[in-house]
Design a protein around this nucleic acid. Sequence first.
DNA 1: TATATCTGTCCGCTATATTGTACATATGAT
DNA 2: ATCATATGTACAATATAGCGGACAGATATA
Lengths: 261, 261
Amino acid sequence: MDAVQDEAAGKRARGLDRAFEILDFLRQKRQALKPNEIAAQIGAPRSSVYELVNLLLSNGILEFTGGEGRVYLGRKLYFLGAAYENHFDFTRECEATLERLAGETRETAQFCMLDGNRYTVVRMREGARPFRISTDVGQSVPIPWTASGRLLVAHLSDQDILNFIPPQDFRLPGGEWLEPQTFIAEVRQAEREGLFTFNSIVDSFTHCFAVPVRGEEGHAAATLCLVTPRDDGIANRDRYLDCLKRAAAGLEHAPARPRRG
Amino acid sequence: MDAVQDEAAGKRARGLDRAFEILDFLRQKRQALKPNEIAAQIGAPRSSVYELVNLLLSNGILEFTGGEGRVYLGRKLYFLGAAYENHFDFTRECEATLERLAGETRETAQFCMLDGNRYTVVRMREGARPFRISTDVGQSVPIPWTASGRLLVAHLSDQDILNFIPPQDFRLPGGEWLEPQTFIAEVRQAEREGLFTFNSIVDSFTHCFAVPVRGEEGHAAATLCLVTPRDDGIANRDRYLDCLKRAAAGLEHAPARPRRG
DNA sequence: TATATCTGTCCGCTATATTGTACATATGAT
DNA sequence: ATCATATGTACAATATAGCGGACAGATATA
């Protein structure tokens, strides 16, 4: 995914980087693939991918599944992820918070974080509406496409923001170009107000509310969001923001608190 | 952890293997450690560990946490693990099954799998007793110490079992030596009967019941277990086994079913 | 003060991991 | 039959990753 690092051509890639490139790619695809397909689609040498895939298979990081030699993320990753989740024990409180948020507002509530230099929905609770709005959990999305994105990079300097976000991510899904300076102005505004709301960029019928959940360093470690139909969102703006802020306050200490040690 | 692979001395370790050795070690320790400590405790060159830790940090596989330069498993691993869990969607049904099992029996119910060549409790539900019996979720334990272990290796040949299980894992926690042939005989018995029960080897007051949850290849992909006080277990043996078998049957199709594709 | 340990960085050597290429097989199209 | 594509394996060349060891600051001990 990171097309940044291969600056000069003809450089050898490090095994570790390629390995995690493979893992990230499988996560993004969300399906088992043959080593050949992986190599072709990530633009890596076939022999390298075969070597790495076999190594990862023997470590339990990848598993054969789906037949025909296809591989997907393995059980070991689940165990490691569970250990992370256990250490930074945000899951339980997070789930309860989303439940309450969705109940209070009847809208879709999300808990979001950065995934490297992109944005991802970590957990979601759909609202109690006849037509529910939902998004894919675990998919990486360009930061500038989202309301939360304004908050999640607010601790960085302007220059760091520009270095951090892949340039092509300022190209919006419709094809329009979001001027980075415009984005940064919104980041600063979000930082001052401690929230960000807008009519979603990725569709034409939702309004998004985001507030920060601050971690131990004081900047937004995550966000809580509501995704609503535009008219409902605008009509209930104050109440929704109030719900969000109280919910975020309840999570503030949780995300970065180790359980043992 | 795998002391098996370094056969000849003086061999260089591969970066990928070392990297996952570090990750596994952190998972086992369940706490943030300094690179120096990691190097010392896994017996790896300091310079290599520093190099790898920095690489893993920059990929989000590790994170600084706990201060003083300590590192622990990172967010990226959580995302990858969540993708695995999402693909092999056993969690939801598993949770409900354990809930029901614990409710029917009032005993501690566990869902267990292999973690490489060891055994681990993936999910657990404590029983509704005044004194509850519980174990650590996510810790790796030698296969021969557990009832489930008899089922989880039953698809292997005798020789493969001996190759698969680290020899020192036949040393029981009390120090006694479990003869591998005795273990294998129990494996075959468990295979025939489709269950295994015994008075636990790791303590003196529990009785363990295990039944297989079969995956797509027909062998035990996981187990469901009950951990009970000895007298209760023996008194309710038939009923408990019946509960377990029905629960396992309900999970049979779930563990290996991809959701999309 | 000197001495020892813990910690992190830096650098040169060389064993080896990555990679391009060739090879082998299967499948499908023409 | 011939050609093209998809798939996996084998191997040698060389760029480089892993390693040992030197160095230095910080902290503790004598």
